[in-house]
């Protein structure tokens, strides 16, 4: 192809991206959501530089359960660790779990949903039955089943990419319970896309099924998947919190959910130590709300005619 057309193609692409951004950022919600997420991503990216290394019972710097002060902006916990320090380190754990499990659930969900919708018939029936199983299975029960398996495979002590095995349990559990939602959405989209005439043309010109799915259907699924992917992350944050709160978290690498669980065990609620459970609780709320806002704005941008549910 000539240089000129390659250039004009690039030009078209930048134009398209610009117009997308203009519409996307036209939503107030998008701004709010992005700001919140950017803030927490910065925290997660460099916790060490911001608040120093993660404090332990030995390196704790404060007294037990003292309320917020200039020295400890968010107070301390029952063994004297700085809650701000814990929160910032927790951001990294929580966000990593949420994002990695979302990637897993998107990959599995898109593959299953697209195969199911494209082939239909018996394949569809079986895949959808499987999907429904994962759709309804409680994540806690699944976690109980998966935990021994993972610990057996990885071993209790080691760590992978700086994360401890029990975090992988949580990632796996969230990934395998939330892909069903994605698969359902992708399937219904695929069902209508495969009736489109360009799919028929692709078959006539000899394109095989895999290429039809990858080159024709997938690009058109991106908007839906992106918008819902943000909701999947929000959901993953909640699930992570719930699982950790129930005691599946790793106390040596605390996430926000783990902190909530510790706070509960320390009796923070009854002893009036509101900062101890309030800080991680608020973080969970803000981050998941941020993803929901971004997701809704994406949805609005891609499907301007269908207003998002208020």
């Amino acid at each position: 192809m000539t240089k000129l057309t390659a250039e004009s193609r690039r030009h078209l692409r930048t134009q398209a991206i610009k117009s997308f951004l203009r519409r996307f950022l036209g939503h107030n919600g998008a701004w709010l959501g992005l700001l919140a997420l950017a803030f927490f991503l910065v925290l997660a990216a460099m916790p060490g530089a911001l608040v120093g290394p993660l404090q332990t019972a030995i390196t704790a710097t404060g007294d037990f359960l003292i309320p917020p002060s200039t020295q400890h902006l968010l107070g301390t916990d029952e063994i004297g660790r700085d809650v701000l320090n814990l929160i910032v380190h927790g951001a990294r754990t929580s966000l990593t779990i949420a994002l990695v499990s979302t990637v897993i659930s998107l990959i599995v969900g898109i593959t299953v949903g697209m195969t199911s919708g494209y082939y239909g018939g018996r394949i569809d029936a079986w895949l959808m039955r499987t999907t429904d199983f994962f759709f309804v299975i409680p994540s806690f029960v699944l976690a109980l089943v998966i935990t021994p398996v993972v610990l057996e495979v990885i071993g209790r002590g080691g760590d992978i990419l700086g994360f401890r095995p029990s975090l992988f349990v949580i990632i796996l559990v969230i990934g395998s319970t939330s892909w069903a939602f994605v698969a359902r959405i992708v399937r219904s989209q695929t069902l209508s896309l495969r009736e489109r005439q360009f799919v028929e043309r692709a078959r006539v010109v000899g394109t095989n099924d895999l290429n039809i799915m990858v080159h024709h259907l997938l690009p058109l699924l991106v908007p839906q998947v992106a918008a819902n992917g943000a909701l999947v992350v929000a959901n993953a944050i909640y699930t992570e919190t719930a699982l950790s709160f129930l005691g599946l978290g790793d106390p040596l690498q605390p996430s926000w959910g783990t902190l909530l669980s510790l706070a509960e065990r320390a009796g923070a609620a009854s002893s009036g130590a509101w900062w101890y459970f309030g800080a991680p609780g608020l973080c969970v709320l803000i981050v998941s709300l941020g993803f929901v806002l971004v997701g809704n704005a994406l949805d609005d941008t891609f499907n301007p005619r269908r207003r998002a549910i208020p």
Partner: peptide, 17 residues
């Protein structure tokens, strides 16, 4: 497929946007 091809009624629908 190499020897038999097709042209469609609605060219807009037949082309991937």
């Amino acid at each position: 497929r190499h020897r038999v091809q097709m042209i469609f009624q609605d060219a807009y629908q037949a082309l991937n946007p």
